[in-house]
């Protein structure tokens, strides 16, 4: 552990520089804290083990893995499984589809949820209570319960195999509205009052005064929506039935030769890693921001 950690670890227990606490006590706390830290690091390694195991599998030839997964621990390693993924020329098309759908969904969820959240937190309008309660009840609706009806609605409107068809169902998730409402409520009302005195209208207050303050919440919701959309499986499976409209999840699943996955443990692992890769990369690069955002955007 670096000195930096020692400092910050001890800082927690004693936020203010209380000089009355003796050096000895301080050291004891540091030790206690670092013991905790060590345990945590051990735990996080445990947390990572499944990941590493899968990465290991993805770097082994399927033939070798047929003889047992313990082959992971020794040479040779190969990138063939990843090369096999690119055998399918449409993989980049699917990647693009996934990006378009996930970004589109994220964008629209943020817009719709912020607008609604603001109204529920700040404005009075007819049937407000009942509408809010109904939307909250929507949280309890499982996707499988509505998916066939949705499918038929989209059929009637001929919206399958389109980006709109893939994005629209995701926009109905009530969680965003709920989160944004809570967040808008937490903003001190004095801010709007000041703006009202300046003769700003409701939309201006929303747009210029409050929205910028909700950025952490936007980031939280945005990340969660993006993740959900990226990993979505069931709706794209039955809505995008043309290969050009497959998302990455569906496309990769369709390239699997058979349900008999035995021959392809390594291939399967590489698919898993590959389809998670864009997200993992984004995550690694923005780790700090994401963590702060999710943390900062939490409901107060």
């Amino acid at each position: 552990m670096s000195h930096l950690n020692q400092a910050s670890a001890s800082e927690v227990c004693v936020r203010s520089p209380e000089k009355s606490i003796s050096w000895l006590q301080n050291f004891g706390m540091w030790l206690a804290n670092n013991k905790l830290l060590l345990v945590l690091i051990a735990c996080s390694l445990l947390m990572l083990a499944p990941f590493l195991w899968t990465v290991g599998l993805s770097l082994k030839s399927n033939q070798e893995l047929m003889l047992g997964a313990s082959a992971v621990f020794h040479f040779p390693y190969t990138l063939n499984n990843y090369a096999d993924i690119f055998q399918n020329s449409q993989v980049f098309r699917w990647l693009a589809n996934s990006l378009i759908v996930s970004i589109g969904m994220t964008f629209w969820v943020l817009i719709l949820s912020s607008l609604a959240g603001y109204a529920f937190a700040r404005l009075e309008f007819p049937f407000k209570k009942i509408i809010f309660v109904i939307i909250l009840m929507g949280l309890a609706v499982p996707e499988q319960a509505v998916i066939m009806a949705r499918h038929q609605i989209f059929s009637a409107l001929e919206m399958h195999n389109s980006y709109v068809g893939l994005i629209l169902p995701g926009l109905s998730a009530p969680f965003g509205v709920f989160l944004m409402t809570q967040f808008f409520k937490a903003i001190p009302p004095e801010l709007d009052e000041a703006a009202t005195l300046d003769n700003a209208n409701k939309f201006q207050i929303f747009w210029y005064v409050l929205l910028p303050l909700t950025l952490p919440a936007q980031a939280t919701l945005g990340i969660l929506t993006f993740l959900t959309s990226w990993n979505d499986y069931f709706w794209p499976l039955i809505s995008a039935t043309e290969q050009e409209m497959y998302t990455l999840t569906i496309g990769i699943a369709s390239s699997q030769q058979n349900f008999a996955q035995s021959e392809g443990l390594g291939f399967l692992a590489s698919q898993a890693i590959f389809s998670a890769l864009p997200i993992i990369l984004v995550y690694i690069f923005f780790q700090k921001h994401i963590v702060t955002a999710v943390a900062g955007g939490g409901v107060k």
Partner: peptide, 10 residues
């Protein structure tokens, strides 16, 4: 429309 997987590149 078929199963049996994809192997376009090969």
């Amino acid at each position: 429309q078929r199963f049996f997987g994809a192997c376009e590149a090969k």
